Amino acid sequence: MSEPIHIVCPHCDAINRVPREKLGVQPKCGKCSTPLFSGQPLGLNELRFARHIHKNDLPVLVDFWAPWCGPCKMMAPAFEEAARRLEPNLRLVKVSTEENQGIAAQLNIRSIPTLALFRQGREVARVAGAMDAPRLVDWVKQNL
């Protein structure tokens, strides 16, 4: 059996230790018993953002968006499709720059949509602009 990895629960934010080979069998949270993966992007606020970025052993892809942004709205279905394709090997999250201006300022987000890929708590890649699902998945795979 391989070394367990840490996965933050998308529901209660508990940190779970899951053997890597068990990722594909729909692991559940040890605290709240909900599935750790749903194939849907997770919406985060400032309070939850740091925990999910720094405590997940999985890479985390963040979509910085705003409700008034046309390209953000157009890309939302592609981001959801990417979540279905990339989980459970990656966590996909959405952060509204309108509601979470502190995160946007801290990370110097200047345009939206902006995608930022984090690994082990550090940003490893960033791209601005809307993408369709195949391009988004390819971009992630190239940068991991």
Score class of each variant (00 low, 15 high):
57 D>E: 11
3 E>R: 09
6 H>A: 15
7 I>L: 05
61 L>H: 10
115 L>H: 03
9 C>T: 07
19 P>D: 14
102 G>W: 09
10 P>F: 02
143 N>C: 00
111 S>D: 13
100 N>W: 09
19 P>Y: 12
5 I>Y: 02
136 L>A: 04
68 W>I: 08
24 G>S: 09
129 G>N: 09
116 A>P: 01
93 V>G: 03
140 V>N: 10
94 K>F: 06
138 D>S: 14
133 A>K: 02
75 M>G: 05
90 L>K: 02
119 R>V: 14
80 E>F: 04
104 A>N: 13
99 E>V: 00
103 I>W: 01
136 L>W: 05
71 P>M: 04
40 Q>I: 00
128 A>L: 06
22 K>E: 14
20 R>V: 08
140 V>C: 13
61 L>E: 04
115 L>D: 01
120 Q>F: 04
70 G>E: 14
53 I>G: 05
74 M>L: 14
73 K>C: 02
14 A>C: 02
131 M>N: 07
7 I>K: 02
22 K>W: 09
121 G>Q: 06
134 P>F: 11
22 K>I: 02
53 I>E: 02
18 V>H: 01
122 R>W: 01
110 R>K: 14
17 R>P: 01
115 L>P: 04
130 A>L: 09
109 I>M: 08
132 D>G: 09
24 G>W: 07
118 F>R: 14
73 K>G: 00
55 K>T: 05
132 D>A: 11
59 P>F: 00
107 L>D: 08
61 L>D: 05
25 V>W: 10
1 M>I: 15
9 C>A: 08
123 E>T: 12
97 T>E: 00
38 S>G: 15
5 I>S: 05
111 S>P: 01
2 S>V: 13
1 M>S: 15
21 E>M: 07
64 F>H: 09
126 R>F: 10
110 R>L: 14
89 N>H: 14
54 H>D: 13
88 P>E: 05
43 G>Q: 13
27 P>K: 08
133 A>C: 14
80 E>G: 12
117 L>P: 06
110 R>W: 00
24 G>M: 04
134 P>N: 10
57 D>W: 03
42 L>P: 00
57 D>Q: 08
99 E>Q: 12
74 M>F: 13
113 P>H: 05
32 C>V: 00
61 L>M: 14
54 H>L: 15
137 V>Q: 03
92 L>E: 11
112 I>K: 03
113 P>N: 05
94 K>M: 10
12 C>L: 10
16 N>L: 09
125 A>Y: 03
69 C>L: 11
141 K>P: 01
45 N>K: 08
131 M>P: 09
126 R>N: 06
81 E>P: 01
72 C>P: 02
2 S>N: 14
118 F>S: 12
45 N>T: 03
82 A>M: 09
23 L>C: 11
13 D>Y: 13
53 I>W: 00
143 N>G: 05
97 T>G: 11
46 E>F: 03
71 P>V: 04
6 H>T: 14
144 L>C: 12
7 I>Y: 04
82 A>P: 11
56 N>S: 12
15 I>C: 07
8 V>E: 03
98 E>D: 15
7 I>R: 00
32 C>F: 09
16 N>W: 07
94 K>Q: 12
89 N>D: 15
101 Q>L: 07
25 V>M: 13
48 R>Y: 01
30 G>L: 06
91 R>L: 10
135 R>A: 15
118 F>K: 12
107 L>K: 04
35 P>R: 03
60 V>F: 09
